[in-house]
């Protein structure tokens, strides 16, 4: 029974995450406003980060990857048994480190894209892609 609930709930969580990815990709493809596309891009990158952290989470590994028993004043070299016990219960720290880096890089990308959008608006007076197409190419788009 426990195994069934575990499998069901994990499958449910993975399917909601994949549904969010599908929703954001659909929104980025169909919504005409560039700021809306930027908002959805930030949601998409957050969801990809969440997926990475979920891959690092395994059944039975229910502790954060912080080694207990070490302080600033007292830091003995841990023995192998202690380390093995810790590694048997802690989640995988590598995806978490990568995600912390990716969050900060995502913020930098967002600020850069926002600056580009401000320049576009100052030059063409709109951020709607149909109007932008009409103004840049001189044909097509929404009249």
């Amino acid at each position: 029974m426990d195994a069934f609930w575990n499998v069901f709930l994990w499958g449910y969580i993975y399917s909601t995450v994949i549904a969010i990815i599908a929703l954001t990709v659909y929104g980025m493809a169909t919504r005409p406003h560039l700021v809306k596309k930027l908002i959805l891009l930030s949601i998409l990158s957050d969801t990809a980060n969440l997926l990475a952290v979920m891959i690092g989470m395994r059944k039975g590994f229910i502790k954060p990857p912080v080694f207990p028993g070490i302080s600033y004043t007292n830091h003995p070299v841990a023995n192998t048994t202690q380390l093995a016990k810790f590694a048997d219960t802690a989640v995988d720290p590598v995806p978490q480190v990568l995600v912390v880096t990716a969050i900060v890089i995502g913020l930098a990308v967002l600020v850069f894209l926002g600056y580009v959008l401000i320049l576009l608006y100052q030059k063409y007076g709109t951020l709607d892609v149909r109007l932008l197409e009409a103004k840049i190419t001189g044909k097509g788009g929404k009249k």
Binding site: M57, I62, P64, A90, Q96, V100, I103, L107, L110
Partner: peptide, 23 residues
């Protein structure tokens, strides 16, 4: 809930504070 408290410490100021402020 997924045992990543270090990500929470980075994620709350960046994604709840700075992302909406920039946009």
């Amino acid at each position: 809930m997924l045992m990543a408290p270090d990500i929470v410490l980075v994620y709350i100021p960046v994604a709840v504070g700075l992302y909406p402020a920039v946009i």
